[in-house]
């Protein structure tokens, strides 16, 4: 697997910001009430993440180390301000449904985390790939939670009405916490199983008894599983 594939897998599955690292939780809980909201928020965050990663990576040799955090925050805040103007002008519906969570993208720990851990050290192209991959991991997670909550809470799928049966629990805040908790648990369960399977396969290929494998788990699963 080449370098970019590895970065992509890292952002999408092995270090999934929402289910694995549990970052950016406020937006995840607040905007997963419907699949459309989740998708909109995910794409907005992905755009901010891509732009901020690219800019920070370009400026990584210019920004002095001591003031890097304020510098990162200003760059991210600028990107969010631009995004807010664009959404206000062209997508007023999404702008309204995101409400206070749109300016709060600035303090989303995921974006600052990627800036600090990746973009401030790596070349531009790598940072761009990382930004898109992490953002997509977040988007997929939010959309899945949105689909679950919308399906049970209002009996529809991306706004299409399926039936009149609804469970109010899933649309209010208690449902958000519950679905998020269960999704994280399922994600951990599935990744653990996949990892175990991969290790067993590798051990078999090397004719080493299972459980005594000297190889560390490299977690290079190509499976497209998401909780």
């Amino acid at each position: 697997m080449n370098k970019y594939g590895k970065i992509t897998m890292d952002g999408l599955v092995t270090n999934n910001a929402t289910f694995k690292l549990v970052l950016g939780t406020c937006a995840t809980l607040g905007l997963s009430s419907s699949a459309m909201n989740g998708l909109g928020m995910g794409i907005s965050v992905t755009i901010v993440l891509l732009l901020s990663n690219v800019v920070i990576s370009l400026l990584r040799k210019v920004i002095p180390n001591t003031v890097r955090i304020p510098a990162f925050i200003v760059i991210i805040a600028t990107m969010v301000t631009l995004l807010r103007m664009v959404l206000y002008k062209f997508m007023p519906d999404l702008y309204d449904s995101m409400g206070v969570f749109l300016p709060l993208i600035v303090v989303n720990c995921m974006i600052l985390g990627r800036a600090e851990a990746f973009a401030s050290k790596q070349p531009v192209l790598d940072s761009a790939v990382d930004g898109v991959a992490t953002g997509l991991g977040f988007t997929v997670a939010l959309t899945i939670m949105g689909i679950i909550r919308e399906f049970f809470g209002s009996g529809s799928f991306f706004g299409m009405k399926l039936w009149d049966f609804t469970i109010g629990f899933f649309t209010n805040s208690a449902g958000a916490f519950f679905v998020y908790g269960i999704c994280i648990a399922l994600f951990i369960l599935i990744t653990d199983q996949v990892e175990k399977m991969l290790r067993a396969r590798r051990a078999k290929a090397l004719r080493i008894p299972d459980g005594l494998s000297p190889l560390p788990a490299t977690e290079e699963g190509t499976e497209k599983e998401e909780a």
Binding site: F177, G181, A185
Partner: peptide, 23 residues
Amino acid sequence: AAKCMKGFPITMVVASFMAMAFY
């Protein structure tokens, strides 16, 4: 708790019950 529920998941479920009370 089950291994996959340890840590964040169980906290989230507890928070869910608290949110129900606040509802």
